[in-house]
Design a protein around this nucleic acid. Structure first.
Lengths: 119, 119
DNA sequence: TTAACACATGAACACATGCTCATATGTTAG
DNA sequence: CTAACATATGAGCATGTGTTCATGTGTTAA
């Protein structure tokens, strides 16, 4: 006569009504996925530094490489990730490719994150 | 007579003054690290779902386990990560441990992230 | 005390991630 | 055309991360 719940939790401990309510209010799984994806992209030391550099000015790959003191390949790889996430956009000018932040959402997100960090 | 710059970039391509200026304006390395850390913690499907669940109500581990339909060990491990990042706090009540969001920074951060995602 | 339960945690494993190295692409100068 | 250069990209490797399984800890009830 047991409910066919998972076996770890006996249903005794949980407030079933609250669980059900939360389940209804929860965002969709796809949304969770996208959100986690966005934060994951922001959650890397190198990428945060790139974003921070672009905070102030449009920069070409070469500039970024110099600022981060990393090799060009590593920077390009990370720029690719940021591009895929639509966090940065790029513009070609002759041999150079200039990168900049794609929208101010990111700027705001990072700023807000900063508040949490530097409390 | 070459500058002792890295060899990838000949200094010809970069706007040295801008690079220098950006270098000055950049946040400290420790800050980058903390910021990346915070976002990395938020950048996981399971953890985002936990946070989203706690958006609405304080919940015990057992509740969360039921909501996420995951095994209790996995949930506990992730709660530990969230605790370490000061994203959630917990409160003991008898055999149960109730978790809730530690501050509203996180709520705001996730909300802002949501705006970027659902454009 | 002992049994039952909620939760925490260490070890092990599969998989993802970031870097480096080598090389490819595309543009400009000569 | 070819050489030089800025950037992109694939492969390989070392390290990090999330889950599961087994077990430990702490609390309540009998």
């Amino acid at each position: 006569m047991e409910q066919d719940k998972n076996d770890t939790c006996q249903e005794l401990c949980i407030n079933a009504s609250i669980v059900e309510e939360v389940n209804e209010k929860m965002m969709e799984n796809a949304t969770h996925h996208d959100l986690a994806s966005l934060f994951k992209t922001l959650g890397d030391h190198t990428r945060i530094r790139i974003i921070n550099a672009l905070y102030h000015s449009e920069l070409c790959v070469c500039d970024i490489t110099a600022i981060l003191k990393m090799n060009q390949s590593a920077v390009s790889h990370q720029l690719r990730v940021l591009r895929a996430a639509k966090i940065v956009k790029n513009r070609k000018e002759g041999k150079n490719v200039y990168y900049s932040l794609d929208d101010e959402h990111i700027y705001n997100l990072v700023s807000l994150g900063l508040e949490h960090v530097s409390e």
